[in-house]
Design a protein around this nucleic acid. Structure first.
Lengths: 232, 232
DNA sequence: TCAAAAGTGTTGGAGCTACACCCATGC
DNA sequence: GCATGGGTGTAGCTCCAACACTTTTGA
């Protein structure tokens, strides 16, 4: 039998894997995430996921949203709890338990985030060599994104309020890393009933102007944990 | 900004939703879970999920396995992290963060568990009025079981080493709470390649003796978190 | 008129559901 | 034999991938 609180000496932190679609080397969108440079030991000057300690009277979700804003200035369009990492030796300085959240931010919002000396956007698949066990966390978050995007409608949280069918398809292609048939993709998402045409069209392209769509507020909850669902 | 450890005053506990199939009122299997009576405040004498405090040098998974054994004597055939509950007010006595695990135990093992004054098996859907936020936790665990059983091969962890096709079908019917076509069910699971016939048959029934099968050790991991997968 | 992407139609195959049917055993 | 569940076959249906084809704009 063990003891609670002070006898335990376990510190509780939150970390967040923030995902956004930014143009890659070839101009097509790729999944990116912001990293922050650590200003303290352990792992001083190394790159890590944004996060921080949980306050005494703060929910885990609020702590995730707060630390994410403090370190990167970003406001996520979607936030869900991912997993809790608690290996006794995962931090060299005392025991730290990290409740990890996964967040999605829209491309427009992501470009607002100040990139500087201590914050840097990184292509998600290239994020290695991070502090603590953050490599493992990032890989797990990407795996979850890629499996969940196939059955949940979370891709919409990467996009701005209105978007064309091709933009939505690009999101799926970037996440799943394979091309999708435009015709079949259109029928699939139209049948799902999660988006609705605005009546507007996107002009200024060098071809036929595509219809614009808007996300329908999700009606069915993803499960009995309402607080695990989307926010904002 | 907040502080770690002692300044935080957050106690870290694990709780486990242990699920097993036991005969219900009509003799067909139903999902049950063991509850333990609390011997301390808060919620003294009320029913709650088994659990306990995390020790300083113990992984969360080990803590789940240990507290589960201490309170119920059960050894799970499957154990995975479910979710972490951390509302600041979820315990009336100081802040408690509960990392909740979900465990499956085989029917044979479940009957071994001592049922007594302070441990009681309860039909999962009737488990209400529990201490803390454990009602919510149970509902979430059941939802996860019912969605996961459709795409993962976790139902096998309810059964003993060898089993007939009908027994496996009964597991699915109990979890999904609807009858399944025996013919289609057989083809479905045979195509999945997760079980293999032993060559033996189950005799003593009053009809044609069914073939016995054995679970194939799962080859593909459920994701990049190997520690989240099955044990034993 | 042409290039390029938007958007529609169509066809073949895979897989699933419902249900008919035979098989093998105990009684 | 008959009852009971084990196990197989199959027609019809839905869904989906592939790809041909038409539409609409800018240059």
């Amino acid at each position: 039998m063990c003891q609670p609180a002070e006898q335990q000496e376990i510190s509780v932190a939150v970390s967040t894997v923030i995902l956004a679609l930014l143009p890659g080397g070839d101009g097509t969108p790729r999944v990116h995430l912001p990293l922050v440079r650590r200003t303290r030991d352990p792992y001083r000057d190394e790159w890590a996921l944004p996060g921080g300690w949980v306050c005494k009277d703060e929910s885990l979700r609020d702590a995730a949203r707060r630390t994410l804003a403090e370190t990167t200035g970003l406001r996520p369009s979607y936030l869900e709890q991912l997993y809790t990492f608690g290996r006794p030796d995962r931090s060299p300085t005392g025991r730290v338990l990290s409740v990890v959240y996964s967040a999605l931010v829209r491309t427009h919002e992501a470009t607002v985030a100040e990139e500087g000396e201590n914050v840097r956007w990184c292509a998600a698949d290239d994020a290695t060599g991070l502090a603590f066990d953050h490599d493992e966390i990032v890989r797990y978050a990407l795996w979850r994104l890629r499996t969940k995007v196939e059955y949940a409608h979370i891709a919409l949280h990467f996009l701005d309020e209105t978007f064309s069918m091709a933009q939505l398809r690009e999101v799926y292609e970037a996440v799943l890393q394979r091309p999708l048939d435009p015709a079949n993709f259109r029928r699939h998402v139209e049948a799902s009933g999660t988006i609705v045409p605005t009546g507007e069209r996107l002009t200024g392209t060098r071809h036929r102007p595509p219809r614009l769509y808007r996300a329908l507020v999700p009606e069915g909850s993803p499960g009995p944990l309402a607080t695990a669902g989307p926010l904002s």
